[in-house]
Amino acid sequence: MIRLALALILALPAIGNAQQLRVATYNTELSRDGPGLLLRDITKGRDERILQVTRIIAEVNPDIIALQSIDWDHEASALNALSRALAAAGVRFDHALHLRPNSGLATDLDLDGDGLTGGPGDAQGYGAFTGQAGIAVLSKHPILHEEVRDFSTLLWRDLPGASLPQMDGLPYPSAEAQAVQRLSSTAHWVVPIETPTGRIDLLTFQAGPPVFDGPEDRNGLRNRDEILFWRHFLDGQFGQPPEARLILLGGANLDPHDSDGINAAVRSLLTHPKLQDPAPRSAGAEQAPDQGHQTPNALDTVDWEKPGRMRVDYILPSRDWQVAGSGVFWPAPGDPMYEHAVNASRHRLLWTDLNTN
C-alpha cells in the first residue's frame, strides 16, 4: 500500500513554488453551440465535463494558463464564471484576458468557397456565432493590459511569404475574399505579465485545423501560416520582439510528423534558435497502444477518434529560461485522475515549471 501511494504521488505534477513559475495550456473543448450556453452550464454547476476541467486545472495549479475553446462574450461572463468555479475548486486567478477572437466574426463574403454566404465557414474564423471557441489567459500575476499586442486583425495576404490558396491559377475562393481574410482562425496575442521576479511575455494562439478543405488546401495553408507567424514575429518582422523572457504556448493543431498538414511548419518552431522544447510527456500516452507514428507516444497531447493520438499542443519557452520540469496531464490507467483526464476533453493539459532566478 505504501508503494502504491508513493507511485500515485509521483504521478502528479508537483505544485509550483516561489522560485518557479508554472505555466500551462489546455484546449478545454468547452465551447457550446450558441451564445450564452457556456455561461449557463458553468453557472448550473452540474455539467460533468466542466467539473472535470476545473478539477484538472486545480490539480495542476498553474500560475498562468492559456485556455482554448472558451466561448467569448462582451462582459467575459463565461470566463468569470469559470474563474469562480476554479476558485471553488481550490485555484484562484485574479487576472484574466479574453479579447474578441476571429472565430464566428461574420463577413458578407463567401470565404470557404462553398458558393454560399452567411455560414460558419464564412466568418473570419470558423464559428456559428461571434466568439465561439475563443481563447483566454488566466493568471495569478498582473496582466499588463495596456501593453497587450493583438495581431488578430492581420490580413493573411500581409504575412511575409504568405501561402494563399489558388484554384486553376486564380485566387481561391476569390480575390475579394482574400482581400479581407484575416490570418488568425482564432487569435494571435502577445501578453505581458508582471511576475514577482520580473516581466514575461506570453505568446499564445489557437490555429485552425489543416483539414476539411479541398485540393486548394486552403485550411492546410492557413494553418501553416498561422504557425509561421510566430517565426516572423520572433525574427523581428512585426516590430521589436520582446526583450523579456517569453513563452510560446497554445494549439498548433499540427503534429511535427504524423498529422495531415504541412508538418514542417511546427518543426520550424520546435527548432527555432530563440526557443526550447521541454518535450512534456505523460504515462497515459506512453502506455497507450502503439500506433506506428513517428512522434513518440509519450509526447502526444490529443486523442482523436479517427486520426488517433498526436502532439498538437505546445509550450515552448525562450532559451533564457531554465526548465525545472514539464508534463502532459494524462495519468496512466488505474490512476484516480485517469478518467477525468480522458473524459474532460480530447486534448490534455500541458504544464511546464520554469526557474525564475
Rank of each mutant, 00 (worst) to 15 (best):
L164K: 09
L8A: 06
R311G: 02
L316F: 01
H340L: 05
G113V: 10
N80Q: 15
W230F: 13
A179N: 13
Q206Y: 03
A85G: 05
L164V: 13
S103T: 14
Q294N: 06
V137S: 02
L159D: 12
Q68E: 09
T301G: 02
T25I: 02
S139R: 05
Q124P: 06
S31M: 12
Q206A: 10
I135Y: 00
Y314N: 02
Y26H: 00
L154V: 11
N219T: 02
M1P: 13
G292N: 11
S259L: 04
I227Y: 08
Q287E: 13
V302N: 00
W230S: 06
A7S: 14
I57R: 04
A244Y: 05
N357L: 12
L270S: 10
P142W: 13
E147C: 07
E286P: 00
H347W: 05
L203V: 01
R55G: 15
P242N: 01
K140H: 03
D201M: 06
W156Q: 11
P215Y: 00
G325K: 00
K44L: 14
A89Y: 01
R319F: 01
R231Y: 02
W351K: 03
A136D: 01
A66D: 02
A162T: 12
D290R: 07
L269N: 05
H74P: 15
P317Y: 07
K44P: 00
T356Y: 04
G169W: 12
L12H: 08
G115F: 07
G169S: 12
V266W: 04
Q124W: 10
P142K: 07
L82I: 06
P296E: 05
L99P: 15
F205G: 00
P333K: 00
L254Y: 03
A96S: 15
K306I: 13
P307N: 06
S326F: 00
A265N: 04
D335L: 00
D217C: 03
D225R: 08
T107Y: 11
P196M: 01
R32P: 03
R348W: 03
L38C: 04
Y26T: 00
V191P: 04
I15D: 07
P173S: 09
Q294W: 08
A324M: 12
I9F: 11
D33L: 09
I15W: 07
H145K: 13
A78R: 12
G115I: 08
R32E: 15
L39N: 06
